[in-house]
Write a protein that binds this DNA or RNA. Structure first.
Lengths: 184, 184
DNA sequence: AGCCTAACGCAACGAAAATTGCTTTAGGGG
DNA sequence: CCCCTAAAGCAATTTTCGTTGCGTTAGGCT
């Protein structure tokens, strides 16, 4: 039974809309983007966007969630500290790009009430890393000590984002469990 | 010389607009609020809002900043730990109210590009508390270990906000400096 | 109390966004 | 390869937003 057509033209439309949103959000900021504007940039009819996503906040959230998400492999070097730093560093690097930061801010605005949340994959990864740590720390510690400080700066103090931030946060997490910090 | 009329009718208008914004932001989320909508709810003419605030992001930011900001005194009990917990607890309690959380999300959306930022007063307070700590920690530590985790949960995981969060974060901050933790 | 004018209300307008009915295209199972 | 229909396109319409000019109300200083 034929249901949901995801390939071919539809896929192209979605891809074009995504790029258009990213361009426009970078150019004008998430607050000053409109659906007709996106449609024009994407070479797509506005109606298609309205029918697919409904409204703009919904769409922004969807697109903010999509990035950095797919089946990206987690770092696995053998050293827990190195893995964590690599992982945190990826996140910092990703959101250091103004596009992605702007999208995150847009996603933040429409998070909360709706369960849609563009960081849930990050939390899933935190769970994996916590499991791998032999109970040195819990996923919640990873969230509060590493993800939260990074995301806070991304949203409110983007110009203070540096690669060292990842190292500082990870070391703060590990300094409670020194035997793990010095492990191979 | 007659300048700036802040009392009487103007004050009433501002107050009514504020309440209207808070109601609507709670009901529909910061992204789905418009100025005409607010005006109607406030029983005020849209023109007045446009002329006073200019546009919506500006207004949301203004209102988000106003709350919890006025001349609120910082806790000063003599015990650093108690002060910090009281301070962090105030923040948690404030943003536990859905209105304030939604306003913060709205502010987050327009942060970054514009320098307007509804958490700058929080950072100023962090500076004061850090100075008071005899260099036990820096303002940045306070931000990354206490404010960031709280704000992260407010924005992305509001249903996980609990009073214990404040205690947990403060103790994490102080566990690096045990002599301070046990001070009177 | 009276004057000056800041700030609000009203109404009309232009522009842009959202909705709707219908037609056309093309995905994907048989 | 054909059929069925999901999804995109198109065009006309309706809604809503934001702006502007002008008259009215009332704050606050003298």
């Amino acid at each position: 039974m034929p249901e949901k057509r995801t390939g071919g033209r539809s896929a192209v439309v979605v891809a074009q809309v995504r790029s258009a949103v990213e361009e426009l959000v970078r150019e004008r900021g998430a607050e000053r983007v409109t659906i007709p504007l996106i449609a024009e940039r994407a070479g797509v009819n506005p109606t298609s966007i309205y029918r697919r996503w409904g409204d703009l906040p919904t769409m922004l959230n969807d697109i903010a969630t999509y990035r950095l998400d797919s089946d990206r492999p987690l770092p696995d070097t053998g050293s827990l500290r190195a893995d964590l730093i690599a992982w945190a560093g990826e996140i910092v690097a990703h959101y250091a790009k103004p596009v992605n930061a702007a999208l995150l801010r847009g996603g933040a605005a429409s998070a909360g009430d709706t369960e849609s949340d563009c960081l849930r994959n990050r939390r899933a990864e935190a769970q994996v890393l916590a499991d791998r740590s032999s109970s040195a720390f819990a996923a919640d510690d990873l969230i509060e000590l590493v993800i939260a400080p990074i995301i806070y700066r991304v949203i409110f103090l983007p110009w203070t984002l540096t690669p060292e931030l990842a190292v500082r946060c990870v070391d703060r997490l590990l300094c409670h469990t020194p035997e793990v910090a010095s492990e191979a």
